[in-house]
Design a protein around this nucleic acid. Structure first.
Lengths: 168, 168
DNA sequence: ATTAACTTTCAAAATATATTGAAAGTTCAA
DNA sequence: TTGAACTTTCAATATATTTTGAAAGTTAAT
């Protein structure tokens, strides 16, 4: 397979992958494109290569920047903005973890904490089941939260080098 | 806060949470409802409590069963089917991991393996960047895959009891 | 201050996804 | 068998999300 075909495949599949994880197709595709591009691209380049509209590209590039996944670059002597993606997979992963944790896990844990203290007869099996379920999910979530925190703070080689132990 | 209000909040938020992870709102809500219900429910119960149509409930219950998250139960002497959810958070988590790994991660790793061997001048910076990006993502994915495999095989207490070490 | 190059916005349109409910299918007690 | 009780299907509909592109906004060289 040649580069251009492989690029197409990667971009298209990465887009589909994104949608299964609540990230819109275009955002994932733009990210994919910039990850595999050796040089920075302009908005026009992205529009042309992915065949999507100006507004769409603009909106998704801004979103990617807010996630910390892209940077604006001004090339010396040029008027227009260029964009590059963070290329280091480990950094990309930790940026994504950080962001989703903040947006989703943290608020959910806060909610669960509230729901755990409901009024009502603790002997009622419905109350009991509710509290047990919520606290079970919360315990799991807290543990995951901690683990992700450590991951994000850790060094790349810890994970990628296979130097980590999962059992005590 | 009282049970009925807390239930509503949990179901509604769990549904929203689901959509951010590529699981449809109704499926997540049905799962939430059954997780906090002490006794098995019928399709009718679910329809009534969540105010959704017969077809929708039926389709999503079947999907949840295929994930291994719900079981059909026939109560002795009853004609109709009841449904219960797996209540153990750890088991729920591993079932979900297993399923998503199979449906998403495994195929993606297969694709990346193919894309890594493209034809073309290895000195071309575009080819180089492509191969580097793909192999970086693949390395990370393989590591994640291994970690998840160990998690799924491990005992609940490993994770939930906080007995695990993340550093060597 | 002008204006050409470039970026951003956002209402409308297109697309994708989820939901409904009536009809068809199945099961089983009598 | 029959038919009442229950389950499943799926075409039509509703809802949610994404995309477009023209217009408005911004910037900076002259």
């Amino acid at each position: 397979m040649h580069l251009s075909e492989a690029k197409k495949q990667f971009i298209s599949n990465w887009g589909a992958f994104g949608t299964q994880w609540g990230i819109n197709r275009t955002m994932a595709q733009i990210h994919a494109l910039l990850m595999i591009s050796a040089d920075p691209l302009t908005q026009e380049d992205v529009m042309a290569q992915l065949d999507i509209s100006r507004g769409n590209v603009n909106m998704n590039i801004r979103e990617l920047i807010s996630w910390g996944l892209l940077d604006r670059v001004i090339l010396p002597g040029e008027r227009k903005e260029y964009f590059t993606a963070e290329k280091d997979t480990w950094k990309v992963a930790t940026l994504i973890i950080r962001e989703r944790k903040k947006r989703e896990l943290d608020p959910m844990l806060k909610l669960l904490a509230q729901l755990e203290n409901i009024d009502g007869d603790k002997k009622d099996k419905n109350v009991k089941q509710f509290v047990e379920t919520i606290s079970g999910i919360r315990k799991f979530g807290k543990q995951a939260d901690q683990m992700l925190d450590r991951m994000v703070k850790a060094d790349e080689s810890w994970f990628l080098g296979g130097l980590f132990k999962v059992f005590k």
